[in-house]
């Protein structure tokens, strides 16, 4: 499998204060780092999942990868070209190969647009006027398992699961190489959730598209993804093959996440690790290892020295002084 996307030391900043205010308050930076020094790779036909709590920077990272947010430093290489340096015209071509499934399925569809128009809108945006829209709409709806009747429906006439399917159809319109799915199953019932995930898996097998999935539902990660990264305060704390992470997590935060997962049966459940305290604010990042304020295994060193990534081989790494 060849490399599709390679992100190196990516940093995304947001301004939270005016320059004047920060100058008056001395030394305080007017920016916060929503994503800090993140590096990862996605291969062709692979599913990469990103797990982390709300506010950890998952969606920001996704938006930066798609080219919707400016980056402060670092590079995003897509099939050899750096997206961060692209002129607008080239960026437009890049966006044809990468598409997005938004978090809120009904909210991301225009309430005044019929489904058929919504899913063929990408052709209009990219000036592909030679396509037969009727025909394409039918083909796309068929791909996601909806009948052609849905062409004339409006978003409010769709159920949550159907709206998701329409979102998938729209994402597939331009035959992208990579689909970025932000919480593709949030708010869905277990049965419908299964349907959507099966659909994504099937499309990947048939079309060879790569998936970048953001979620905080650990139960589904195990079944859909090849590689997983755990994000905390805008950094990756652990990244590796999904199977290995679930069997033998190295970072205490990953361990806590996995052990905290409430399950119906207690078979195979880990001994629960309770995290103390609150998620620190991005404006005042803790010193040393940023997780030490909540880490049950933290020692003196953790409070002062920032750990570097430890490579366990097999493209598996964790950022911790005392990995489990």
């Amino acid at each position: 499998m060849s490399q599709l996307l390679e992100v190196n030391n990516l940093r995304v900043q947001f301004r939270v204060k005016s320059s004047m205010a920060s100058w008056l308050q001395k030394s305080e930076s007017p920016f916060i780092d929503a994503v800090r020094d993140v590096s990862f790779k996605i291969k062709e036909g692979e599913t990469f999942t990103l797990v982390g709590e709300s506010g950890s920077g998952k969606s920001t990272l996704a938006n930066a990868v798609v080219g919707l947010l400016p980056t402060a430093s670092g590079s995003i290489n897509f099939m050899g070209d750096d997206v961060t340096q692209m002129p607008d015209k080239q960026l437009m071509a890049y966006r044809k190969q990468i598409s997005m499934m938004w978090q809120n399925p009904t909210g991301s569809l225009s309430p005044r647009m019929q489904v058929g128009d919504a899913i063929t809108e990408p052709y209009k945006i990219h000036n592909l006027s030679d396509r037969d829209k009727q025909q394409e709409a039918k083909r796309l709806l068929n791909l996601v398992g909806l009948s052609a009747r849905f062409q004339d429906r409006y978003p409010h006439q769709l159920s949550g699961g159907q709206a998701r399917r329409v979102g998938v159809a729209r994402a597939l319109a331009l035959n992208p190489k990579l689909i970025v799915a932000d919480e593709p199953t949030a708010g869905l019932d277990v049965s419908v959730q299964g349907e959507i995930l099966n659909l994504l898996n099937r499309l990947q097998d048939d079309l060879g598209v790569s998936l970048f999935v953001i979620t905080h539902n650990l139960n589904i990660v195990r079944h859909i993804s090849d590689r997983t990264a755990i994000m905390y305060l805008g950094r990756f704390v652990e990244e590796g093959p999904t199977d290995d992470i679930f069997v033998n997590p190295h970072h205490p935060y990953t361990l806590a996440l996995l052990s905290a997962n409430p399950e119906v049966t207690n078979v195979g459940a880990l001994e629960r690790i309770a995290l103390k305290g609150e998620v620190p604010s991005l404006m005042h990042r803790p010193s040393g290892c940023e997780f030490h304020t909540r880490c049950p295994f933290a020692q003196e060193l953790c409070a002062t020295v920032a750990p570097v990534g430890i490579d366990f081989g097999f493209e598996y790494s964790a950022t911790c002084h005392y990995p489990r």
Binding site: V190, S191, Q193, G194, N198, N201, I220, D243, N261, V264
Partner: peptide, 21 residues
């Protein structure tokens, strides 16, 4: 019964085809 079967947490083995109703 179906609902419990569909819960991805209850499926111990990794699968690319999750059960649905």
């Amino acid at each position: 019964q179906k609902l419990l079967e569909c819960d991805p947490a209850s499926i111990a083995k990794k699968t690319r085809n999750l059960p649905t109703i």
